[in-house]
Amino acid sequence: MMRVEVLFFGKLVDIAGASLVLNNVTSTDELLEQLRLQYPPLAAEKFIMAVDKKTISINTSLTDNCTVALLPPFSGG
Protein backbone atom coordinates (compact mmCIF):
# COMPACT_ATOMS: atom_id res chain seq x y z
CA MET A 1 0.00 0.00 0.00
CA MET A 2 1.28 3.41 -1.01
CA ARG A 3 1.32 6.16 1.57
CA VAL A 4 1.71 9.73 0.35
CA GLU A 5 1.77 12.77 2.61
CA VAL A 6 0.33 15.94 1.09
CA LEU A 7 1.26 19.38 2.45
CA PHE A 8 -0.70 22.54 1.70
CA PHE A 9 0.61 26.09 2.03
CA GLY A 10 -0.64 29.68 1.92
CA LYS A 11 -4.17 30.12 0.66
CA LEU A 12 -4.52 26.38 0.03
CA VAL A 13 -4.54 25.76 3.81
CA ASP A 14 -7.89 27.61 3.93
CA ILE A 15 -9.26 25.06 1.45
CA ALA A 16 -7.75 21.74 2.48
CA GLY A 17 -6.05 22.19 5.87
CA ALA A 18 -2.31 21.94 6.48
CA SER A 19 -1.77 18.30 5.52
CA LEU A 20 -3.37 14.95 4.79
CA VAL A 21 -2.40 11.41 3.86
CA LEU A 22 -3.50 9.69 0.66
CA ASN A 23 -3.15 6.01 -0.03
CA ASN A 24 -2.93 4.39 -3.42
CA VAL A 25 -2.03 7.32 -5.60
CA THR A 26 0.84 6.49 -7.91
CA SER A 27 1.39 9.77 -9.76
CA THR A 28 0.97 13.50 -9.21
CA ASP A 29 -1.82 13.59 -11.84
CA GLU A 30 -3.73 10.93 -9.92
CA LEU A 31 -3.13 12.77 -6.68
CA LEU A 32 -4.46 16.02 -8.17
CA GLU A 33 -7.53 14.25 -9.50
CA GLN A 34 -8.31 12.91 -6.02
CA LEU A 35 -7.67 16.22 -4.31
CA ARG A 36 -9.93 18.09 -6.74
CA LEU A 37 -12.73 15.61 -6.05
CA GLN A 38 -12.26 16.03 -2.32
CA TYR A 39 -11.77 19.83 -2.45
CA PRO A 40 -13.51 21.31 -5.53
CA PRO A 41 -12.29 24.90 -4.81
CA LEU A 42 -8.72 23.68 -5.48
CA ALA A 43 -9.51 23.62 -9.20
CA ALA A 44 -9.63 27.43 -9.27
CA GLU A 45 -6.26 27.87 -7.54
CA LYS A 46 -2.83 28.43 -9.05
CA PHE A 47 0.02 26.39 -7.56
CA ILE A 48 3.13 24.40 -8.33
CA MET A 49 3.99 21.05 -6.79
CA ALA A 50 7.10 19.70 -5.12
CA VAL A 51 7.77 16.00 -4.66
CA ASP A 52 10.20 15.38 -1.80
CA LYS A 53 11.20 19.07 -1.95
CA LYS A 54 11.92 19.05 -5.70
CA THR A 55 9.59 21.22 -7.73
CA ILE A 56 8.10 19.44 -10.74
CA SER A 57 6.42 20.66 -13.92
CA ILE A 58 5.23 17.39 -15.46
CA ASN A 59 3.33 14.35 -14.19
CA THR A 60 5.65 12.53 -11.79
CA SER A 61 5.39 9.05 -10.34
CA LEU A 62 5.20 8.78 -6.59
CA THR A 63 6.92 6.35 -4.25
CA ASP A 64 5.85 4.98 -0.87
CA ASN A 65 6.25 7.50 1.96
CA CYS A 66 6.95 10.43 -0.32
CA THR A 67 5.82 13.97 0.44
CA VAL A 68 4.00 16.13 -2.07
CA ALA A 69 3.67 19.86 -1.40
CA LEU A 70 1.23 22.21 -3.13
CA LEU A 71 2.75 25.68 -3.31
CA PRO A 72 0.64 28.68 -4.34
CA PRO A 73 2.41 31.86 -5.61
CA PHE A 74 4.97 33.03 -3.05
CA SER A 75 4.36 36.27 -1.17
CA GLY A 76 7.20 36.67 1.30
CA GLY A 77 9.13 39.82 2.15
Binding site: D14, L71, F74, G76, G77
Partner: peptide, 27 residues
Protein backbone atom coordinates in the same frame (compact mmCIF):
# COMPACT_ATOMS: atom_id res chain seq x y z
CA UNK B 1 18.72 39.03 -3.32
CA UNK B 2 15.59 40.96 -2.28
CA UNK B 3 13.98 40.29 -5.67
CA UNK B 4 14.90 36.60 -5.53
CA UNK B 5 13.52 36.26 -1.99
CA UNK B 6 10.22 37.74 -3.16
CA UNK B 7 9.87 35.45 -6.17
CA UNK B 8 11.70 32.24 -5.24
CA UNK B 9 11.32 31.63 -1.50
CA UNK B 10 8.33 29.51 -0.47
CA UNK B 11 6.97 32.02 2.07
CA UNK B 12 3.38 33.21 2.24
CA UNK B 13 1.94 36.33 3.83
CA UNK B 14 -1.58 36.44 5.18
CA UNK B 15 -2.87 39.98 5.58
CA UNK B 16 -4.83 40.23 8.81
CA UNK B 17 -7.39 43.03 8.90
CA UNK B 18 -8.41 44.99 11.98
CA UNK B 19 -11.78 43.18 12.00
CA UNK B 20 -10.01 39.77 12.20
CA UNK B 21 -10.84 38.74 8.63
CA UNK B 22 -7.91 38.04 6.28
CA UNK B 23 -6.76 37.83 2.70
CA UNK B 24 -3.67 36.25 1.18
CA UNK B 25 -0.98 38.68 0.14
CA UNK B 26 -0.01 38.86 -3.54
CA UNK B 27 3.51 40.11 -4.35
Amino acid sequence: VVERIKTELPVWGKELFEDETHQWKVN
